[in-house]
């Protein structure tokens, strides 16, 4: 029993590491542009499969392939934002929600047309788990945790230390004040959508590294990622990191009581409770 509790702790952190970047992307778009983007889960999928193609078919080393895939996902995210979402900026919250649902269907099924319904494995050599302080961890789980932490850290630095980040935080905190203070919103929106696509794709590669790539991996991660984004506070990247650990732990320890296929249901129940009881998130709406 104790052994199980220990091992769930490790897998909770591992799961959290794949969900956190995606949740940070959702959180940024939700916090700055004020709509829930249901297509971001699919950017995980797209990122994972792009990394697969770049590494397996074109022979790039996986870290480089992952970076290129994330950049490409960011560009796709930006391109769709400029061609579709930009038109509905001032049309309230419903049109962008509906657009993101359409985009979700399109991206998920483009992946399905190209790669089919089956699962794919990123080509990494098999590796034995390490024993660290009594925990059993595979090298890929460690890599996943480190990459996730570094990615979130980098996003945090961008938000805290750059002019762009300052504008992002201003628009998230008080859009009216930001606008009258001369913040140009469009470049900020563009940067945020690029970042969100990039972050989600990193999450997708990490998820692929931990298990396999499937067309539904993004959809299956969507509710947990939303739970994390809202729990962490919208627009709050570090909050997303902490909330990812909480949701990860809730999901893993729920395995002591329910079947594993209910994991995303556990995340949803947490999410629904937060929305109904404390809609501003537990950690507040801070970057």
């Amino acid at each position: 029993m104790l052994e199980l509790v220990r091992q769930y702790f490790v897998s909770a952190i591992v799961v959290a590491s794949a969900l956190a970047p995606t949740a940070a992307g959702i959180s940024l778009i939700y916090g700055v542009m004020r709509y829930p983007n249901f297509a971001l889960g699919e950017f995980m999928t797209v990122g994972g499969y792009l990394a697969l193609v770049l590494s397996a078919a074109l022979g790039m080393p996986l870290p480089l392939a992952a970076l290129a895939a994330a950049l490409a996902a960011g560009v796709i995210s930006l391109a769709v934002d400029q061609t579709a979402f930009r038109a509905v900026r001032r049309a309230g919250i419903l049109p962008p929600i509906l657009l993101s649902l359409g985009l979700m269907l399109i991206l998920q099924n483009v992946v399905r047309i190209i790669w089919g319904n089956g699962s794919w494995q990123l080509n990494v050599p098999l590796a034995r788990p390490y024993q660290l302080w009594g925990f059993s961890v595979t090298p890929y789980q460690l890599i996943s945790i480190v990459v996730s932490a570094v990615t979130l850290g980098a996003a945090y630095v961008v938000l805290m230390r750059t002019r762009f980040g300052k504008a992002v935080r201003a628009l998230a905190d008080n859009p009216d004040l930001a606008l009258v203070s001369g913040v140009e919103p469009e470049p900020v929106y563009a940067g945020v959508t690029f970042m969100a696509g990039f972050l989600a794709a990193i999450g997708g590669v990490l998820l692929g590294l931990q298990s396999v790539l499937t067309p539904l991996m993004g959809w299956d991660s969507l509710l947990p990622a939303f739970a994390i984004a809202i729990l962490g506070g919208l627009g709050n990247v570090m909050g997303a990191g902490i909330a990812a650990l909480i949701i990860g732990l809730a999901g893993e320890y729920s395995l002591l009581f329910v079947q594993s296929s209910y994991k995303s249901a556990v995340a949803f129940v947490v999410l629904a409770l937060i929305l109904i009881v404390r809609p501003t998130g537990i950690l507040g709406e801070r970057p």
Partner: peptide, 22 residues
């Protein structure tokens, strides 16, 4: 998969055509 892509595209196009009334 292709017909679901068409469905997604129709959804996006309808929203872009109609958002003013929404």
């Amino acid at each position: 998969a292709f017909r679901i892509i068409v469905m997604g595209a129709v959804l996006m196009l309808v929203v872009l055509a109609r958002y003013r009334t929404m």
